[in-house]
Nucleic acid binder design. Sequence first.
DNA 1: GAGTAGTGTTACTGACCGGTAACACTTTAA
DNA 2: TTAAAGTGTTACCGGTCAGTAACACTACTC
Lengths: 225, 225
Amino acid sequence: MNTMSKTLSTGSDTSAAAVPKVRVRDRILDTARGLFYRYGLRAVGVEAIASEAGTNKMSFYRCFPSKDELIAEYLREQGRGYWDWWDAAIAPHAGDARRQLEALFDNYMTLTCKDGSRGCSFGNAVVELPEGDHPGRRVIEQHKAEMRGRLRTLSSEAGASDPEALGDTLMLLMEGGYLTRLSFCSQGPISVAGKAVRTLLNAHIPAVAPTAKTPRAASPKRSKA
Amino acid sequence: MNTMSKTLSTGSDTSAAAVPKVRVRDRILDTARGLFYRYGLRAVGVEAIASEAGTNKMSFYRCFPSKDELIAEYLREQGRGYWDWWDAAIAPHAGDARRQLEALFDNYMTLTCKDGSRGCSFGNAVVELPEGDHPGRRVIEQHKAEMRGRLRTLSSEAGASDPEALGDTLMLLMEGGYLTRLSFCSQGPISVAGKAVRTLLNAHIPAVAPTAKTPRAASPKRSKA
DNA sequence: GAGTAGTGTTACTGACCGGTAACACTTTAA
DNA sequence: TTAAAGTGTTACCGGTCAGTAACACTACTC
């Protein structure tokens, strides 16, 4: 059960306050991101975070009212990074939702299979936060709802006959990849995600007359439900 | 962060050792199952388990050498139950792997959408056990590998052209449903799992000449490891 | 130069953690 | 009947947890 061994190197170097021009709050948040993601929420104490960030517990509590609030802030921060990544992944194929979905999943596979990946911060966090009233839960539920919405929208734009079903299926796929990553290293079931997406896309998007290459341009108001 | 509130009712009733004819070890293991599944591994202490099981910490340590070993045993126990459920779900359709897969997923959806479901014990556990050497990790990895093997075997028996790909895709689907269950209550993306399976089955199983109904008969051999 | 905001340091609280020692009692089996 | 196995009880260990008090110092701003 002793997850975090004492791997902390000297957070600040020899002389006091030499390098760290960054605000304590930012250093703490950044350290927390790494530690929470690697070891989990409950496994990491505020003292460990503070010391790894080159400061101490007292300064920690000047920046954050509680550990729970830090967790919530950590999740918000992860969320910002996540959507930046997402937008960057689909940007090159603007106007072609089908290729956007393919690119998204290709990108997601490379990222999630990398060494050191521990899947999805939100998925992992929600496992450790069963309490309905934890400040982090709102962030998680909002994030996952947004993810679902975006996948449904992309599915709709791609011309799926049942965009809600396709979007949700893609979400299951993605979340499954995140989760299995934790038990399978890199050669797990996630390897087939790219192929699976294409199979599902083919099954859900009705074939069009072979004139245009892309099924539809943007703004396709075609959902039915 | 105070996950477990003091909800413990009087574990044993008024008179000492009145009802509990069951061995302490079994009571502890049973209690641990409920508590670990509901609140998580780290959130539940051995004292809470012992007391909820109507005994005390000392008796706990006479049955289990450590909390970590209890966790491993808890996971083994969950595994036994899981495969019992699995076998029962596919039994009615022995010989028709395609319908077995459909039945499995239908069954899985009902179960996972139930009130009080917290997804998969193994998926949740692995999030809390990042250490490679925890005795519980072996159990988890074995379980997930077995799951992958079974899904691939069923896919093969169903006549899939690429059974590894289909099996892995189904695994992603299943795992995704387990994970999303934690952020979405019951109306989440998992609702489409049944439909998704059928779509994938159709896409992966080449149409046969409409003479025989079942693609293959099969003696459902257990997968290897 | 003065004031203030940010930061570091040490020491502390009360609660809980996993795990153990020692001893008394009850149930089971030979 | 007797011995052994199983169980309950109380008190304890060292360690860690989240969170706070009090005080000294630095750096930036007016």
